[in-house]
Design a protein around this nucleic acid. Structure first.
Lengths: 210, 210
DNA sequence: GCGAGACGATACTGACCGGTAACTCTCCTG
DNA sequence: CAGGAGAGTTACCGGTCAGTATCGTCTCGC
């Protein structure tokens, strides 16, 4: 398969604790391959041997860098989480008011989730489905990420001056999770296409009357 | 390869061709055990041997009644779907208007999903996460069930006189799916507790202005 | 009484699982 | 130049996976 051996990177400014060479070092290739395969095929469906082969290396190298498949899984989810947070912060940074931040979030969210050709919803939610064991190291990542996401929404609602910010934030949370699952079941043209309008309707309703 | 393997008698007792004894016949015990274990531990996490043992029988009996684990899985999902439909019809039968039917649905849904002590969301949505292969027989059940659920919501919105019934129905669909996932991640006291209020807000907003 | 069907028990296949051991090669650094 | 770390290779471990084969038993309808 791939392999493409020596490429003479010619960079390597002798930073001591950075031994990676090649296109990328074995650890990074393994990590990225694992994230990709876990997302596309499911965590339980992918074996460590498959990951190693697909990354152009061997199982031994995988176990040199990661203590177990479970820990590798948790690590991948942490990367997913970090990527999500980065995306989130970038989106809200461009908007001026809490209301506009929420609108920008749901607008970008709808595009991201629904328009990705081979998307399969949220890798972290999916992990929660695949790994029921509460002792699995990935479960902690799942809970922390979703709790954080919930709180961010509630905080934005509070800043916006909603009457019941926690409840409105939770309702918006439901819309997001539902969009993930709708994408997974229906593909691109599913119910997720209405999430922005639905979020706006909920926000308007809460800011208005009784 | 077997002919019409999957039939389901499940009728009254003393019908002549009913060799089931014991509490229940082996097929039913296997089937119920599989549904339970698949839901609680995940489909991929449960082996056929485990199912057979837990049902107090053997793997051979399982394969006498079901052609494969994949088909058994699909059959379990069909039962989940039938149970859901039955629940749905019962709930809307008690309400007089489309608006009240929707309200009754979301009220009962919130209770069912959130108050079940060891609930793990929707078994059918979970199956979609666990089984990415589009050729898996369970995928057909997933898609049909969710399409049906989506259409039922849209139809109720239409009967209610919503201006954009399809979009409103889709928004309500997102709320339901989100509630399932929220239950799975957060347990009983999660964001799902607001789904009834959120649904009402969306409906009111759509029936009212612009 | 007898065949037939349902069921249980045991053993097996071949593939794959996560994880480990021991060895070699290469390249960077001191 | 020596040494050590990162990486690749091969072989292996015990266990489990889905699925099959064989045989024996129990019961029920005829």
């Amino acid at each position: 398969m791939k392999a493409q051996t020596v490429m003479k990177p010619a960079k390597a400014e002798t930073t001591k604790s950075e031994p990676c060479s090649e296109p990328r070092c074995a650890r990074d290739r393994i990590f990225d391959t694992a994230r990709d395969l876990f997302y596309k095929q499911g965590i339980r469906a992918v074996g460590v041997e498959t990951i190693a082969n697909e990354a152009g290396t061997t199982k031994m190298s995988l176990y040199r860098h990661f203590p177990s498949k479970d820990e590798l899984t948790a690590e991948c989810l942490r990367a997913d989480r970090a990527e999500f947070d980065e995306w989130w912060n970038e989106v809200i940074a461009k908007a001026s008011t809490p209301r506009k931040k929420l609108e920008a979030l749901f607008s970008a969210f709808q595009s991201n989730v629904c328009e990705d050709a081979d998307g399969r919803g949220c890798p972290i939610s999916n992990a929660a489905v695949e790994l029921p064991d509460p002792k699995h190291p990935a479960r902690k990542v799942v809970f922390e990420h979703k709790s954080d996401m919930r709180k961010r929404l509630q905080d934005l609602c509070r800043e916006m001056g909603a009457r019941k910010p926690d409840k409105l934030g939770d309702a918006l949370f439901l819309l997001m999770e539902g969009t993930y699952m709708a994408r997974l079941v229906f593909g691109v043209d599913g119910p997720g296409q209405v999430v922005l309008k639905a979020a706006n309707a909920l926000i308007d309703a809460e800011k208005a009357a009784p």
